[in-house]
Design a protein around this nucleic acid. Structure first.
Lengths: 185, 185
DNA sequence: GTCTATATCAAGATAGAC
DNA sequence: GTCTATCTTGATATAGAC
């Protein structure tokens, strides 16, 4: 028989906290807020995690792990192929880890001093490089960052579901980022 | 003789607060932080503004006024012309009011209950409608929101100056949003 | 593993001197 | 107009019972 997907309190904390961090920011979320939505006490939260920042670290670790896998898959491809795959995989990654992605792109940069976050920020930069097909043209880099931020921000919004978002985000990202080829192939 | 552009403390407060609100969020910014950067005391801040939220309101009012002007200029145009102008004017607006724009797109939505912000949020929606050429296709709306959020987020970053950003943002926005015409004009 | 206290600290805001 | 206290509240975090 299938083990019931009864989520542990710990997982519930991560889910709720990730949601609130992404919506109102890390500072904007109190342990009280999280505890109320999880349905437990603040002390229970702090039994599972050593502090509020540890909850953020756990969430970022999830994002980092997923990003590592994505980047590894791009390793052997030539820039053009890597770009196409990076765009597709990035959109899917954001849709699967909406909250975690928002954290990496919106809240983690506010903690740029924290060494714990340097690694995931470096991965975000590496993803940006892949998405520009390793261009050093500032206009291409700006375009890539625009799309990355835009995709993450739109995906946070509960207004759209993943089935609507995926094709729409893929289309806008490809239009914006893939340079049209004027030569025949 | 020209009056020295010696900024008043009030204007300095708005500049510093707008910068910090945009970078680390409203909740993430303390009166202490603002006071230190302005070079005055918390009490001096609260002499000029009745509270932290009043500082945000003043900044949002600036953004709202600018948006009102933009939308008025679009009023009489047909959708296609309005779309093209909306994109260009939006980019210029964001570059002129980087911080205020970030507030409207990133921090104000967190206060959706506040009636004081309903008006500017409605204007942001109206701008989105103009930018999609009034399409009701969800994919177009998602694309527009992606670009709007992306442009605002990239413009916050001090890494780029306005001279680099303007052409780059215009190009990515037009690529992403203006549907290619296959028929000859 | 989760709770009820409670300690500690920082934030927003006020009062009144200068 | 700006300062130095000071008040009040709410947040993180701890201690110890169940």
């Amino acid at each position: 028989m299938v083990r019931m997907a009864r989520v542990s309190t710990r997982d519930e904390i991560l889910r709720v906290a990730g949601d609130q961090f992404a919506r109102v920011g890390f500072k904007g979320t109190s342990l009280q807020d999280i505890a109320v939505e999880v349905g437990c006490s603040k002390a229970a939260l702090l039994y599972h995690f050593a502090g509020k920042e540890q909850i953020l670290l756990a969430l970022v670790a999830t994002a980092e792990h997923a990003l590592t896998g994505l980047l590894a898959d791009l390793g052997d491809l030539d820039p053009a192929a890597a770009q196409a795959l990076a765009i597709e995989r990035f959109v899917d990654l954001v849709l699967e880890f909406r909250r975690e992605a928002a954290l990496v792109y919106e809240v983690v940069p506010q903690f740029h001093s924290e060494p714990a976050f340097c690694s995931v920020l470096a991965q975000a930069d590496e993803l940006c490089a892949a998405i520009t097909a390793r261009s050093d043209d500032p206009a291409e880099i700006i375009a890539a960052q625009t799309v990355l931020h835009g995709v993450v921000n739109v995906a946070i919004d509960d207004k759209w579901d993943a089935a609507q978002l995926r094709p729409a985000l893929l289309r806008v990202a490809r239009r914006a980022l893939i340079t049209p080829h004027h030569d025949k192939d």
